[in-house]
Simulated assay, not measured.
Amino acid sequence: MSKPFDMELFLAGVLKGANATRKRHIQQAKTIQAGIHERWQLDNPWSWQRKHLVWFLDSHIQSRSGSTCYYYLLTISLISSRLRKSWTFQRQADAKNR
């Protein structure tokens, strides 16, 4: 049996800021990882595509408060940065207003 993917180690290179902020990003990244793993059986961010993160934003956090969505969007931006992808994502509130 293989070891689970270490999200904390994965994000270590791009995480900056206060300890509480770092912990929040790591916890949110683990939540994103669990959601994508449950849906597509992909637990390694290196195998994710943009559609997986968009799906998470659309299905898992659409009913959350605006601030929660914003913080998840920040975490997803960190994941994209770590993957060296130039993916962009819209906040759900912004998409609804257009």
Rank of each mutant, 00 (worst) to 15 (best):
A34L: 11
R22C: 13
F56P: 01
N44D: 15
V54T: 03
T21I: 07
R24F: 10
R39L: 00
S86Y: 12
E38P: 02
Y71I: 00
T88G: 02
W55V: 01
E8W: 01
L73R: 07
A93W: 09
Q49A: 13
Q41H: 06
L83F: 03
W55D: 06
W87I: 00
I76G: 02
S86H: 15
R91I: 03
L57V: 06
A93H: 13
H37S: 13
L15E: 11
I79F: 02
A29Y: 10
A12G: 06
R50Q: 12
G13P: 04
I26C: 06
A93Y: 15
R24H: 08
K30I: 11
M7W: 07
A29P: 09
Q62W: 11
S81F: 07
F89D: 05
I61P: 01
I32Q: 09
D6E: 09
Y70E: 15
L53H: 00
A20E: 15
W40L: 07
H25M: 08
R24Y: 13
W87L: 01
V14A: 00
Q90C: 08
I76C: 01
H60W: 10
A20L: 12
D43G: 09
K3G: 05
S63R: 10
L73C: 05
K16M: 08
Q92V: 04
Y71A: 04
G17M: 05
H37Q: 13
D94K: 05
F10A: 05
N44E: 14
G17A: 06
R64D: 12
L83Y: 05
I61H: 00
H25C: 11
Y70W: 11
W87R: 00
P45Q: 02
W55F: 00
W46P: 03
S2F: 14
